[in-house]
């Protein structure tokens, strides 16, 4: 998701080069055609050449529209990710404050939310795994959850549309 807008931007840049070369080629053909028309008048050969020019020009215009679509969807993607990040960060801040986590617990909880296990968190924080396990236990207690996945669930519940959530829960129950 994060890298999608970058790949879209790269595609747009590559297509821009192709379209620019097409534009240059189209202009050369148009000038060449105009020169030939003045020199020898219109004939079957020049008719074919004119068709090629029209096709090139159409390629330039359609290519330009395609570049715009790529540029716009890259921006949309970027904006959506940025907004989701902002909202998620705000939600984390609010909940951690509500649960009165200490700075160390908040740190551990954030790693846990990102999917790290106890050993990884211990390595990242340069702490003993026993310490991290104790901190995590306190985080779970303060949040009123029993596991790492339940902690994640506590956040997702707020981020996912409640209506959708309700229907899917009732479906699984039924």
């Amino acid at each position: 998701m994060q890298r999608r807008h970058l790949s879209l931007q790269r595609k747009a840049a590559a297509l821009t080069m192709v379209v620019a070369m097409q534009a240059v080629a189209a202009l050369f053909f148009i000038l060449d055609l105009a020169g030939d028309l003045l020199a020898e008048g219109f004939g079957a050969h020049l008719a074919a050449e004119s068709a090629a020019v029209v096709a090139l020009l159409a390629g330039v215009v359609i290519g330009a529209f395609q570049i715009r679509a790529l540029v716009l969807s890259a921006r949309q993607d970027e904006a959506a990710v940025a907004m989701a990040r902002g909202v998620a960060a705000e939600l984390v801040r609010l909940r951690f404050g509500e649960w009165k986590l200490t700075p160390a617990e908040a740190d551990v909880a954030l790693f846990a939310l990102k999917g790290c296990d106890v050993a990884e968190i211990a390595a990242l924080r340069g702490a003993a795994s026993g310490t991290v396990r104790a901190q995590l236990a306190r985080v779970y207690a303060k949040a009123g959850v029993g596991s790492q996945s339940a902690l994640l669930g506590a956040f997702l519940e707020d981020l996912i549309d409640p209506a959708l959530h309700a229907t899917q829960c009732s479906e699984t129950e039924a």
Partner: peptide
């Protein structure tokens, strides 16, 4: 949910770059 959405999010708006056509033609 609404108070979260309207809460002042850190105003880090990515700096707007020119699109590839503007850059390449320039």
């Amino acid at each position: 949910m609404t108070e979260i959405a309207s809460a002042p999010t850190p105003a880090h708006r990515p700096a707007r770059r020119w699109d590839p056509v503007v850059k390449l033609t320039h």
